[in-house]
């Protein structure tokens, strides 16, 4: 008689056993709205958007910048080293090391540029 697992004599890991019943209540979803599951979500997303904008643009109108980040002013944006300051009505971003012109930056972020350009 051919033994089981003859091709793979090592014992496979056991399947995990369910620890909860199959319902939302018992799994804690009802008690945890999205915004409390990850309280830092908005801040983390703003930082990511800020990084993307800085890679894509040298300057951007403050109003547009605020729309992207959903903030009332540049000063209320998350602390970041990518913003160089405000020049007139525009936010100036710090140049990205090793990338000097906007076109190169755009190529570096590819899809991000396509995404941002739809809005501007």
């Amino acid at each position: 008689m051919i033994k089981n697992n003859i091709l793979n004599p090592t014992q496979p890991p056991p399947h995990p056993q369910p620890t909860t019943q199959l319902s939302d209540k018992s799994r804690g979803v009802d008690d945890l709205p999205l915004t409390t599951l990850f309280p830092g979500f908005a801040s983390a997303l703003r930082s990511s958007i800020l990084q993307t904008l800085s890679l894509t643009f040298k300057k951007m109108p403050v109003a547009q910048f605020n729309k992207f980040l959903n903030v009332s002013g540049v000063d209320s944006a998350p602390k970041s080293d990518v913003v160089d300051g405000v020049e007139g009505d525009c936010v100036a971003f710090r140049p990205v090391a090793g990338v000097n012109d906007v076109r190169s930056k755009v190529e570096n972020v590819g899809a991000s540029f396509n995404l941002v350009s739809k809005v501007l």
């Binding site: 995990p16 056993q17 369910p18 620890t19 909860t20 939302d24 799994r27 804690g28 979803v29 945890l32 999205l34 599951l37 990850f38 979500f41 983390a44 997303l45 990511s48 958007i49 993307t52 972020v109 899809a111 991000s112 995404l115």
Partner: peptide, 19 residues
């Protein structure tokens, strides 16, 4: 063994990792 809160957290984390 699906843990819905953890699954939702994982999706939110990856969404925040934009772009």
């Amino acid at each position: 063994v699906l843990n819905p809160p953890n699954s939702l957290k994982a999706m939110l984390l990856s969404l925040a990792d934009f772009p």
